[in-house]
Design a protein around this nucleic acid. Structure first.
Lengths: 124, 124
DNA sequence: CCGCATCCTGCGCGATACTG
DNA sequence: CAGTATCGCGCAGGATGCGG
């Protein structure tokens, strides 16, 4: 287990409040990040494609989350200056890398949803 | 790839707005869930242990998240009626199972934090 | 030591309307 | 088509204080 040292000189430690890892974790923990990254794993997608794929996401949150993912270097945004305009979103290599643990998480949830619902009904 | 069918009779699909998977995903995506589950992977922990381990968490959110994890069947809460009281938290088998993809996610973030910060400074 | 109750604030997020 | 702009609500989440 190799220790990662971040730019501040401190070891990367998500349990530490000051570590920037926490901010990233908070982003990933956002309501839509997991679904968006996961959807882009299926390939290049246009804005409207994503809206359709991810049921219930609003325009605002989709745009906002995409911009955040772009800033963190997880997705690229390509604008084709045609009429009508055409904007395509893709995962970067870093984004693909992130997609692995994220997909694992979504799949885990889908796989164990019945056990969880049983636990919930017991708790009530 | 086997299809999971949940109690409603529909296939489990996180992209569908009505699927209960979404609610669970939202819980997991909570600000503290990842850190708490991850911390409990180190073994049994008392309430105060968790507060110390997870820097910056408030009493309220720690209690609230723990109750939520309990309701979903991820952790057990054991009260020893001694003086002073002693409350211990443990992962259930289901919780241990969930911890795997969660740990992977935290470790991924710690590992790639420098790449992300570089992307951010470029974006600015 | 381990909480629960309460008050309060910010902002996550949705709804709606408008633009190149 | 792919957004921006604006408004407002609800709840996540922090601060404080009390109780067993």
């Amino acid at each position: 287990m190799e220790t990662i040292v971040e730019s501040s000189g401190l070891p990367a430690d998500a349990f530490s409040a000051k570590c920037p890892t926490r901010q990233v974790l908070d982003h990933i923990a956002g309501k839509w990040t997991i679904l968006i990254v996961d959807a882009l794993l299926e390939g290049t997608m246009r804005y409207t494609d994503l809206r359709r794929r991810i049921e219930g996401v609003s325009q605002k949150m989709l745009t906002q989350t995409l911009r955040s993912l772009e800033a963190d270097g997880f997705v690229t945004r390509t604008v084709h200056p045609t009429i009508p305009p055409r904007v395509e979103y893709d995962l970067t290599p870093l984004g693909h890398s992130l997609a692995e643990p994220i997909t694992a998480l979504r799949q885990w949830t889908e796989t164990h949803i019945n056990e969880i619902e049983q636990a919930r009904s017991r708790a009530s």
